[in-house]
């Protein structure tokens, strides 16, 4: 076990780990690829209202959505409310650097550590996102003009909320992150298919 962890990778495996590091790049700081998207369609909004969540901010029709949300007493959605935006890019960068280091110094334990941390991070972030959604749908202003049953907007998939049809989907950012994450099992699979060197 210890010898396995202390072991090194072959060239093809190292290349895949570098790929995992590089793939994380476009999701880092700049709002280039959204990690999550939400679109809301209503009869009077055939063009839809769109939210795009990036690693460090939210963009899209925030003002229009906030204005409509005030009818049901939902909290104003503002990027400043999210602590996550202040550390998500840094953490993603850290995972990228770890993957790059693992490939450069060529130590299996470093790669596995990075991958496990990345996995834990992903689980935490999903639950965090779910908690925010729950919060927006439950912490409603009791003075609101329209009183709604507490609700949770969909984490993923489709839901009908009042006159809106809401579609919530992972963005290209999350697809890239998922691809980087999958490269962990892929490298493991390649190693086992070709037999682990006892180097």
């Amino acid at each position: 076990m210890v010898s396995y962890l202390a072991g090194t990778f072959r060239g093809s495996e190292r290349r895949w780990i570098v790929v995992a590091a590089l793939v994380l790049l476009p999701v880092f700081f700049l709002p280039v690829l959204p990690v999550w998207t939400m679109s809301l369609h209503a009869p009077q909004y055939p063009e839809g209202l769109h939210l795009k969540i990036y690693a460090n901010t939210i963009r899209g029709d925030l003002d229009k959505i906030n204005l409509l949300n005030h009818y049901v007493g939902m909290h104003r959605i503002t990027p400043r409310d999210f602590q996550e935006f202040t550390y998500m890019p840094q953490l993603l960068t850290l995972f990228g650097v770890m993957a790059l280091l693992a490939a450069l110094v060529n130590r299996r334990w470093l790669a596995i550590l990075g991958w496990l941390a990345f996995t834990g991070f992903a689980v935490l972030m999903f639950s965090d996102y779910a908690r925010w959604l729950w919060h927006y749908g439950h912490d409603l202003d009791p003075r609101a003009a329209i009183k709604l049953q507490a609700f949770t907007p969909p984490l993923i998939g489709y839901a009908k909320m009042a006159n809106f049809r809401v579609l919530s989907l992972p963005g290209p950012g999350t697809l890239l992150l998922g691809f980087a994450w999958l490269l962990g099992p892929v490298v493991w699979w390649i190693e086992h298919r070709e037999g682990i060197d006892a180097r």
């Binding site: 925030l62 906030n66 005030h70 104003r76």
Partner: peptide, 8 residues
């Protein structure tokens, strides 16, 4: 405060 919640 109510208006502030509506306007960015």
């Amino acid at each position: 405060a109510e208006d502030a919640a509506l306007v960015r």
